[in-house]
Design a protein around this nucleic acid. Structure first.
Length: 517
DNA sequence: AACACATGGGTCC
DNA sequence: TGGACCCCCTGTGT
């Protein structure tokens, strides 16, 4: 958050339901059932069109088919036994959309391109009448269809209890500290938190002090020089009493002027801590209730139901940041796939100054995307944010990190690398240098723009390659890494693939990350 | 290879 | 208000 001495922005975090989810029913076989009258040639055509293999007669018994198909298989075998073409068994592979369960079309990946269900509103802009591929907000588009079966079974797990009492989940809450010029010198702290970290703030006025907020309900401060840590706040002093009472800390920010630490939990309460005395100040204030959206508050007058303004959003707001220089603008990221800019915090905040359609809506399981200002940009226009939907990049589905001009909505740059096949929800720009740290569930990458020398060298190498191998032979990767050798210098991974031509940034170093970052 | 699982949010009743 | 149910591009671990 920006320099917020007078007004404090707090985004809402809705209360967790904590409810038990039922195990998903098996899909309706009736819908998947194919009438057995279609000819075998049709079957083959259809199967080919949907990218499925059609088993040879001799291999059909061993062919791995879905239950519904098996049924058809059996029915067809019974019905056509000794009839027509002797021994010929047809396999029905009628297209069933995994999204809307209707037949005749399919949604999912076709190669590196995701095909939307046409029955649904656009996945990107949420408007009906078109899909992502034809969305006017889409940058690039390609076509294809392939089924991508996926199972999503929901069960309730008191993972806090698991980790606290049984100690089973040991990897959660691991804190890693890297020096970005010496990444091999990673330091990990496994005893600071035992649940995921939701916020980390370094106190610039007190160099080397790191504050961390976690779903374990605690705030800790760690001296990065000495490695010494101490707890500041524990919202669950009585331990685990079920999910309905367990408090998790999502929001945290420092007010260095006043030596304050502001903490927000999952129930909508805001807590104040004194940085020096490390004690709580006053009583927690309930500043959000379920259904409320983003609000601005004056920290001097923090009472329930007295916000300075309500910033209207269509859905849950993942983040809101004051602009880094003046603090006069606010940048919000909302689950309705829109980034909003509010130009004057003391002006009319009835509606945003601009709305930029951008893919960051996600189902579950991901750290929420948060568009952040570039702290170096004195014009307060550039923002960085990871993109959810993938881009077909030379046959590989990659999730770029976008640099957006928030004054125009224009995409200034998209950072991709064949080594980053995961979504990158967490992105931090260096406060002084042209460096981006991007995190995913798998890794942390440090990016910087290529120097002219590096670009020249790369062009030279590319030309040499084309001269030696020719420029037209590209190996199909089908969304996965291939093993083609490359000119990468660090050899900690055997999975290297093609260089991203469009990428104007280069990966200089990397390290292994843990869970959500 | 084929799951099981993480536990957030919207909607409906 | 709360529980049941559903949900579109995940990623990891077993």
């Amino acid at each position: 958050m920006g320099p917020t001495t007078r007004a404090q922005f707090v985004y809402n975090r809705r209360r967790r339901s904590g409810g038990r989810h039922a195990v998903e029913e098996a899909s309706d076989e009736e819908e998947q059932r194919q009438d057995s009258s279609s000819s075998s040639s049709d079957e083959e055509d259809e199967a080919e069109a949907s990218g499925e293999e059609v088993a040879d007669e001799e291999e059909e018994e061993a062919a791995a088919v879905e239950p519904a198909v098996k049924e058809d298989h059996a029915a067809a075998a019974a019905g056509e036994k000794r009839g027509g073409r002797k021994g010929r068994i047809t396999i029905s592979l009628k297209k069933v959309c995994k999204v809307c369960k209707k037949t005749g079309h399919e949604a999912g990946f076709k190669g590196a391109v995701y095909i939307d269900c046409p029955m649904k509103p656009c996945f990107l802009c949420k408007m009906p009448g078109h899909t992502t591929l034809t969305c006017p907000h889409r940058v690039a588009m390609e076509h294809g269809v392939i089924p991508a079966p996926r199972r999503n079974t929901n069960t309730s797990l008191d993972y806090v209890f698991q980790s606290q009492v049984k100690g089973k989940i040991s990897m959660k809450g691991l804190l890693g500290i890297w020096d970005y010029v010496k990444l091999h010198e990673k330091i990990t702290y496994d005893s600071v938190h035992f649940c995921i970290l939701n916020s980390m703030k370094i106190d610039n006025a007190n160099d080397g002090i790191l504050y961390t907020a976690s779903s374990d309900g605690t705030i800790s401060c760690t001296d990065l020089d000495t490695g010494m840590g101490s707890p500041l706040l524990n919202l669950n002093p009585n331990g685990w009493n079920g999910p309905s009472s367990w408090r998790m800390i999502y929001g945290m920010d420092l007010n260095t002027d006043k030596g304050l630490i502001l903490v927000a939990d999952n129930f909508g309460f805001l807590y104040f801590l004194d940085r020096r005395s490390k004690t709580r100040i006053g009583h927690p204030v309930l500043i959000h209730k379920k259904g409320s959206k983003a609000r601005i508050w004056d920290t001097r007058k923090l009472e329930a139901n007295s916000p300075l303004a309500n910033l209207a959003h269509g859905r849950v707001v993942n983040s809101g940041y004051f602009s880094p220089q003046s603090g006069n603008k606010i940048l919000t990221t909302c689950q309705d796939n829109r980034i909003r800019v509010w130009d004057y915090i003391f002006g009319d905040l009835q509606s945003p100054s601009r709305e930029i359609v951008h893919s960051h809506d996600f189902n579950r399981h991901l750290t929420p995307f948060k568009a952040e200002w570039d702290p170096k940009d004195y014009t307060e226009t550039v923002a960085v944010v990871g993109r959810y939907i993938s881009e077909n990049y030379n046959g590989v589905a990659l999730h770029p990190i976008d640099f957006i001009d928030t004054s125009s909505g224009k995409l200034l740059a998209e950072v991709m690398d064949p080594d980053i096949t995961t979504i990158s929800p967490v992105n931090k720009l260096h406060p002084q240098d042209d460096i981006l740290a991007t995190g995913s569930s798998r890794s942390i990458f440090i990016w910087k723009p290529k120097t002219e020398d590096e670009l020249t060298e790369e062009r030279t190498k590319q030309k040499a390659k084309e001269y030696i191998y020719g420029s037209g032979s590209r190996k199909k990767t089908n969304g996965k890494h291939d093993n083609s050798s490359d000119d990468d210098s660090d050899g900690d991974s055997g999975r290297k693939s093609k260089k991203a031509k469009k990428t104007r940034f280069t990966c200089t170093t990397k390290g292994k990350g843990k869970s959500k970052v």
